[in-house]
Design a protein around this nucleic acid. Sequence first.
DNA 1: TATCCTTATGCTAAATTTGAGAATAAATAG
DNA 2: CTATTTATTCTCAAATTTAGCATAAGGATA
Lengths: 349, 349
Amino acid sequence: MALKSESGSNGESNGTVSIGLNAVIVAVTDEEPRLLTVRPSGRLRGQAGKGGRESGALPFGPLDPEKDRTLELGLTRWVREQTNLELGYVEQLYTFGDRDREPRSRSGGRRVLSVGYLALVREGQVAGREETSWRPWYEFFPWEDWRRGRPPLIDAAIEPALDRWVEGGKDPLRRQEHRERADITFGLRGAPWDGERVLERYELLYEAGLVFEARRDSELSSAGEPATGMGGRGEAGLVPGRSMVLDHRRIVATALGRLRGKIRYRPVVFELLPPTFTYLQLQRVVEALAGVRLHKQNFRRLVEKGGLVEGTGQLVSDTGGRPAELFRFRHEVLRERPTPGVGLPGVHS
Amino acid sequence: MALKSESGSNGESNGTVSIGLNAVIVAVTDEEPRLLTVRPSGRLRGQAGKGGRESGALPFGPLDPEKDRTLELGLTRWVREQTNLELGYVEQLYTFGDRDREPRSRSGGRRVLSVGYLALVREGQVAGREETSWRPWYEFFPWEDWRRGRPPLIDAAIEPALDRWVEGGKDPLRRQEHRERADITFGLRGAPWDGERVLERYELLYEAGLVFEARRDSELSSAGEPATGMGGRGEAGLVPGRSMVLDHRRIVATALGRLRGKIRYRPVVFELLPPTFTYLQLQRVVEALAGVRLHKQNFRRLVEKGGLVEGTGQLVSDTGGRPAELFRFRHEVLRERPTPGVGLPGVHS
DNA sequence: TATCCTTATGCTAAATTTGAGAATAAATAG
DNA sequence: CTATTTATTCTCAAATTTAGCATAAGGATA
């Protein structure tokens, strides 16, 4: 038998779907990474956050198959039209196509895929629309911010809840797997914390029914059994953290994980900084993204040795101490080093 | 004005497109990374390779919006149905949606997006269909295989061709940019070679009109001017390397780059190996993927220290020398180290 | 003004990791 | 038995990283 690809239409799909583009637009202001959110609307309004915690949504727009030559151009076009933001760095993240990503009416029976993008903009730029706001990233993922040490909510809320989830496993083998997975993703019982596993952590919490979206989705799905170990008990037993509409928090988790990985081998941080900056500014932005504090002198040495920046000779004296020199990104580094990123020196200052 | 997302349909697209899933299925046999290709068919047959060099296509299948709950399940379903292969490791690569990816008739006017996946299968497994074949990866990208040193075709064919491309730039600024880009992506004029920039290299060659696909696409597009610096001169001036249908070679380039990056921080190599293996087998697979030779003793030390494998006590004596011990992947490493990959020690044996 | 506080920047000693290869072990081919 | 081949263990020097110490240079304040 021949492969399907041998058949007439070249095998590239028969059923149709519509495509939405979602943008995770990130900026860092006041040492806080933020993302641009819009207020959820229509039948999504109030879907999340009924328990008092308000919810957000990512900006999105449809792909216009006629006008938009490429996905990325489509994205930058409607972002420009809607928010006046001119996206510099844009990177495709992932295409989300689970049928259940929108549990209720499936857009009139039509399947909706959404292509997620990560975009970085300079500090200070803001969209002027009323419905949009820059929200601190870590409001959605409080357990990801280790800049002031291990977040207390891990021991206080997450670990015990995950323990319950593990215990609730059907058979010993299942429980063993759950235990393993919980330990690895959240660095429990001596396992190390891996800053890049943002998505794994969110998905584990979802599976364990510990984030709002999980409960919302299971309540909405008329047929299916609810995910392991959760019932419709309001917000009781939920882990802290602002929820989002549909699967948007998952998309943001993907973005954060990707960005944390990327800063280490590509000079993307500079997309978030003004043209000139001090070493400390640079360090604060890296720390904000990585979610950890870094050793100042070693960070400096690493960046220096990497040839990532060059001094401008100018000094700024609003540092609260000795004036600091302003540096700028050294473009030439791109042709000198294979992986010009900011290696993260050991944590803590 | 409100964002579009405020409007009724939740903003997620209006126009419809169809979705194809493309799989880059990789195995390593005889120290050679190979990918599963199918013979191009229908109006694609003979589109590429008319100059004698035959062309290939990636296996693909449509997404069935009704049946397939998730994209990944859809992929594994039709791969299983068509090839009997049971995909273990599957990773989404990228969604390709350029309108011009298929220059001619656009599937009856309907836009086609394709979601590319990377799948790893164990050495030895092969699909039984006649129309499929495992082709060495580096036939498509001869310049990526540095295991026997810098590929001569870089100096012989690529560098001079890129020089011409650079010289053909319209203005000095353009030429400067082209020069920079050529140097960085191909490691010319003292710039280092970065094994992970596979896609950048392919795209540069495409832009410079040095791969078959570029010429094919520009000939097919009735309206547009041909890309800089190429004309319809048969295969003259093309860089060696087997071409593929549509944008499939671009997808494969994405896969190779991603895989090269990934082996360094996730233990994915083991997906390509039998359950037990010798150090040299492991090393050969890593070398095959990375496209470089590694220092044997240091590689061993690195893998050992990383706790990636554990000895089985069994020996195999078909090594041609002293018998080697068989090792297996140590699952526990996942909970011990944040980034359990095979760091690449310095090149050369 | 002298002192203290703060941040910036330079420097170093110890510990680790890496790069290159010598040395030894254990098989097979003649 | 000897040469050859691959496996495995060690060593040593060079490079990098970690964790601080020390000095510089502002502003604030007694």
